[in-house]
């Protein structure tokens, strides 16, 4: 693996961040077989601040992925409420908000460079500037040397890095991540956490990440929102800025981890 990235420096001085998403009485229901319906999210409220990493944590089936999709406009709730993005209700996906899915992340017929550059033609800037951005982004995620390779020739970690690069190279306002590292082993996951923090330090992109790993949520996020129950409700909403939460052996880290784990179980 190339280009080990340093962990991000200590969090910046806490300035009150403006909200970018306002989840306002969101209700999402899916029809089920037999005419009934299942509603993982009912009358849900949440505010997500701009320029920070918010982690959504919770047991399987608690509606966190549905919530994430709603933030991206991939799922639209009942018209009794919804997701307000920069003052407007979201009704469809927008290139402003890019989502990284768990699976089928890369196009198998394109090289890493082709994949990362997929959305580039729709992003602002002169062609030369866009190409330079592509090369810089490949370097940022440590894939400059592997740029000519195809997805089936990559390791799981490289694939996820390529997916992150593809999403970020178009300079979206928001990056949504749905359990992006769940298929990776522990060592690789930790490297990806450092990478994500480093990318954030460089771009200050608003990120919302869904995960079921407590450690991952605390280490990566500036804020951890624990969801639970059916329909989903916020069990805990805690800021995780500061150096203590970047070190998974720190007593404060372990304390919080224990607290969250007891909530989820």
């Amino acid at each position: 693996m190339s280009a080990p990235l340093a962990t991000a420096p200590a969090a910046p001085a806490p300035v009150p961040a403006p909200p970018i998403f306002k989840v306002d009485r969101l209700t999402v229901a899916f029809p089920e077989r037999g005419g009934t319906e299942v509603a993982p999210i009912v009358d849900f409220d949440l505010v997500v601040e701009a320029g920070r990493i918010t982690c959504l944590l919770g047991p399987s089936g608690c509606g966190k992925t549905t919530l994430l999709k709603a933030l991206g406009g991939f799922v639209v709730g009942r018209d009794t409420g919804g997701v307000v993005y920069r003052g407007r209700y979201l009704t469809e996906p927008t290139p402003d908000i890019v989502m990284i899915f768990q699976e089928h992340n890369l196009f198998p017929w394109l090289s890493v460079r082709g994949n990362v550059g997929f959305g580039l033609r729709h992003s602002p800037g002169e062609p030369a500037a866009r190409r330079a951005r592509l090369e810089r982004m490949l370097g940022t995620v440590g894939l400059a040397e592997a740029a000519g390779r195809y997805p089936h020739q990559l390791s799981g970690g490289m694939r996820q890095r390529a997916a992150i690069a593809r999403a970020l190279v178009t300079e979206p306002k928001v990056l949504l991540l749905d359990e992006p590292f769940s298929a990776l082993d522990v060592t690789l996951r930790r490297r990806m956490h450092a990478l994500l923090r480093a990318v954030w330090t460089e771009t200050r992109t608003t990120m919302v990440m869904v995960t079921h790993s407590v450690e991952e949520a605390i280490v990566v996020g500036h804020r951890v929102v624990v969801l639970g129950g059916r329909p989903a409700s916020v069990l805990l909403d805690v800021p995780t800025e500061g150096a203590a939460y970047r070190d998974r052996y720190d007593p404060a880290f372990l304390e919080l981890q224990k607290r969250i784990e007891s909530l989820i179980e």
Binding site: G72, F74, P93, P95, I97, V98, M99, F101, H104, N105, F118, G119, R121, H122, S123, R166, A167, T170
Partner: peptide, 9 residues
Amino acid sequence: LTVAANLGA
């Protein structure tokens, strides 16, 4: 298709 649309295609 979702990814492609999301990236502006």
